[in-house]
């Protein structure tokens, strides 16, 4: 649990951070809260010559609740999201899910940007962002572009982000009045990755469904959402079970995970529906 040596950088703005990434190519990685990257470095499964710490970049901070859109800076911590009253009113799902992430100490440091950018299929926020139809702002040498969360994840730890880009901001369309949301997660203990988790948003004739840690990316299923919007829960569950592809691990074999996935999804649907007005 001793990492290999590295150079530490702490740029003060996004442009400088991108500059360091350009200079060192794949030798460099940005670090936000570090809860995924540092353990990997200590296991020597991730070794890089240059670590670019984003803690000193003010423009990556802040939560903005707009009329149509909610914007989260990439360096907003889970704790800041949990304690932000406006966010809790606008998108209660985020607070509900963030409270399921790790423990308070981790949530003081762990960031939304790091959580969604790393591409770890165990992380809770990516599925949530897909459910909410969020988009990610990526800043790179060629400027700023936006990628939908639903298009961002390619495989475990592989995303649409280029090596020299930084995920800087997350935009979430503000859910309309009457929309109900729920996040249901089964885990072995507090702080654990999900055995299965489901994010559900339903209301006003529309629905969106995404699941976590049941494939090598989060799974958002347009078909499952369509079934649910039409009031067909069994159709929704069947479509989602078809879309996920869990693998056996210490949490259990595939048949168990599929069973639990359906249970979590049904519970999330029930709870989201009860909140929809």
């Amino acid at each position: 649990m001793i990492p290999a040596g590295f150079e530490y950088h702490r740029p003060g703005d996004i442009a400088s951070a991108i500059g360091i990434l350009q200079e060192h190519g794949d030798e460099a990685r940005v670090i936000a809260g570090g809860h995924s990257l540092i353990p990997m470095m200590k296991l020597r499964m991730a070794e890089m010559g240059h670590l670019v710490d984003l803690q000193g970049i003010d423009e990556l901070k802040g939560i903005d609740i707009g009329a149509e859109t909610i914007t989260l800076g990439a360096m907003v911590t889970q704790h800041e999201m949990i304690t932000h009253d406006g966010l809790a009113v606008a998108v209660p799902l985020i607070r509900e899910a963030a409270l399921q992430i790790a423990d308070p100490q981790v949530r003081y440091v762990g960031t939304i940007g790091g959580n969604v950018a790393n591409g770890d299929p165990g992380n809770d926020m990516p599925g949530l962002m897909q459910c909410l139809n969020a988009s990610f702002e990526l800043s790179g040498p060629d400027g700023i572009r936006s990628v939908a969360a639903r298009d961002f994840y390619e495989a475990a730890y592989f995303t649409a982000r280029e090596d020299e880009e930084i995920l800087t901001r997350i935009s979430i369309p503000k859910p309309g009045a009457g929309v109900g949301q729920a996040y249901e997660k089964q885990k072995r203990k507090i702080g654990d990755y999900a055995t299965a988790a489901a994010a559900v948003m339903i209301g006003n004739g529309q629905a969106s469904v995404a699941m976590t840690n049941l494939a090598d990316t989060p799974i958002w299923s347009e078909e499952a959402g369509a079934w649910l919007a039409g009031g067909n829960i069994e159709g929704c569950v069947a479509a989602m079970l078809d879309a996920i592809d869990p693998v056996e691990d210490n949490r259990g074999p595939v048949e168990f995970k599929k069973h639990v996935a359906a249970v979590m999804l049904r519970r999330a649907i029930d709870r989201a529906s009860s909140r929809a007005g």
Partner: peptide, 11 residues
Amino acid sequence: HDHWRIWKIAN
């Protein structure tokens, strides 16, 4: 008796 082993009993 972790979750999946208990589930397996029930199953």
